[in-house]
């Protein structure tokens, strides 16, 4: 059974009529890193939000199976509990809510759903500090409110920290490279690479090939006008970089 199987998915913004996803089909296997590339407005972020269950989007047809189960009717927290993680393109600031509080609440929500006891505080602190250090997240950042006062790069690293702590089955990285300089990009990529395993799948959404130099994809999909129009190996990303989207999109149309 595939880890993620999206069949003929159509979706739109709840308040608008225009379809953004137009019969999208996509399969991601366990252990696979699937890159999704596409021009602006092709539906990349919509796909990530629809999979995570954001209310502003309305699924008008099709299904998305995670481990064989359709997740499209579930609330966002239930999808998270099933092991789906979205690294946001624009992580949300939550003033007044401390990072540690937030991380602990998320970890415990997951543990409870798995029938585990809540994590003991010393164990939790040790766990967070360990991961944070690997990602270059300072103690000061951990003391602040969630994402408040973080630079763009710090926010992205914080997303990866959360991913590392929650150990999802399927991680969707939505333009995680946007706004990152090369050093930050390396740190983030190292964080992702460290988590690659035969049981886990990644969907890496990006506009540029650059990120894929650091996170080597097993397969590359090209998204255009809400559908996957081409699938290939890592060489497809290089081809896109060289020729631009217009060429491939034009051919497919």
């Amino acid at each position: 059974m595939s880890l993620l199987e999206i069949k003929n998915l159509t979706a739109k913004l709840a308040e608008e009529d225009k379809q953004i996803l137009n019969g999208l089909n996509l399969t991601v296997e366990k252990g696979q890193v699937a890159a999704i590339m596409g021009p602006n407005g092709s539906g990349k972020s919509t796909l990530s939000y629809v999979l995570a269950g954001r209310e502003d989007y309305e699924v008008t047809g099709g299904e998305a199976l995670l481990d064989g189960e359709n997740i499209l009717e579930l609330d966002p927290d239930e999808r998270a509990a099933k092991g789906l993680f979205l690294a946001f393109q624009y992580p949300i600031e939550i003033p007044g809510v401390g990072q540690m509080t937030f991380l602990k609440a998320a970890i415990n929500a997951q543990r409870r759903k798995n029938g585990l006891d809540e994590i003991a505080t010393p164990e939790f602190i040790k766990l967070v500090n360990g991961r944070a250090k690997e990602l270059g997240i300072s103690q000061d950042m951990l003391r602040r409110s969630v994402n408040v006062g973080f630079s763009g790069g710090e926010k992205k690293r914080n997303e990866i920290l959360q991913m590392a702590l929650l150990q999802p089955k399927l991680a969707i990285l939505d333009e995680t490279d946007s706004g990152l300089d090369i050093d930050a990009l390396k740190i983030v990529a190292d964080g992702v690479n460290a988590m690659r395993s035969p049981d886990r799948g990644f969907v890496v959404i990006t506009h540029y090939q650059r990120l894929l130099d650091y996170i080597k994809p097993d397969v590359v999909h090209v998204l255009s006008a809400g559908r996957i129009i081409k699938t290939g190996g890592p060489e497809l990303a290089l081809e896109l970089e060289a020729k631009g989207y217009a060429d491939i999109v034009g051919k497919a149309a």
Partner: peptide, 9 residues
């Protein structure tokens, strides 16, 4: 949405 994506009800 952000909190719920991280698993909170």
């Amino acid at each position: 949405f952000y909190c719920m994506q991280r698993g909170l009800t």
